[in-house]
Amino acid sequence: MSTTTRTLVVVTAGLSQPSSTRLLADRLAAASADALLEAGQETRVEVVELREHAHAIMDAMLTGFASGDLAEVLEKVTGADGLILVSPLFTTTYSGLFKSFVDIVDPDSLSGMPVLLGATGGTQRHSLALDYSMRPLLTYLRTQVVPTAVFAATDDWASQDEALQRRVARAGRELAEAVAARPAPRGSDDPFGDTPDFADLLGGA
């Protein structure tokens, strides 16, 4: 019996290395992959560190054209089965790097895409930015944003906050459910993936 392989693309806009933003992204990816595995679906996780493409993102904004590695990143993002997007928060909103990247994505390419949102910041008082800043941005792009978004403050990492762990697990399950509900991609994991459509054989008659 064949299994379906789903691709999750994780986009993290952390500016430092190591980064608490990347740490949160990795935990969200692990929770989502575990939940998909429980549903009988293998998962391939690909991580995109926006800091590695910062200059190319700015060039793409100026020229309207993405090339090289950045073009490959955009293909990964738009071709994913689900996205995990995590940004640090500055002045109560997502980072400029995160917004610049979203701005160069084809606005019609993410329609219906399951998305899990995460953010990091200094204190819990910034957590509402997920709902009044990041969520509206992705809703505007007609993505399917899962109900639970995850914010991690600096103190959460030191305390190993159990509430944060539960929230990560719940968000991962929600993304997994949204991804699993999508039609399986036709490809190597589908035994009939290379079978031509009957209408095509008839020449569209």
Rank of each mutant, 00 (worst) to 15 (best):
E177T: 15
V102N: 02
F151T: 03
F65I: 12
G193W: 04
E46G: 05
L28I: 15
H55D: 07
E162L: 10
S111L: 07
M1D: 09
I57W: 02
A176N: 10
D161P: 01
L97S: 03
P196G: 06
A31W: 08
I84C: 05
A169L: 09
M1E: 08
E72W: 01
E72C: 06
T195A: 09
R166T: 04
S67Y: 08
L28M: 10
L175N: 10
V47A: 06
L117W: 03
D156M: 05
T5N: 10
G96M: 09
V86F: 00
A29R: 01
V168N: 06
Q144S: 13
G112S: 11
T7Q: 15
L117I: 12
V145N: 03
A30P: 04
R125G: 02
F198S: 12
W157I: 07
R27G: 15
H126P: 11
H126Q: 11
T91N: 14
T5H: 09
S159N: 13
S19K: 00
V73P: 05
V105Q: 12
A184D: 12
M61T: 12
A171P: 00
V77Y: 14
V168H: 05
F65C: 07
T148M: 10
F192D: 13
A169Y: 03
A33Y: 09
G122A: 15
R125C: 01
L24R: 01
G112H: 05
S100I: 01
A153R: 10
L97P: 01
T3S: 11
L85Q: 05
D59K: 11
G14P: 12
A169N: 11
E72R: 15
V9H: 13
S87G: 03
T3D: 13
E162C: 00
M58L: 13
V105K: 06
A54G: 04
D197Y: 06
Q144M: 14
M61G: 15
L201M: 07
L24P: 01
M113Q: 15
R142E: 15
L37C: 04
L130M: 01
S20L: 07
R182A: 07
D34Y: 06
I104N: 10
L164D: 11
D69Y: 02
M58A: 14
Y94N: 01
T148W: 12
L15N: 11
P136K: 01
A25G: 03
S16R: 10
G96T: 08
S32F: 12
V45N: 13
L62P: 02
S188Q: 12
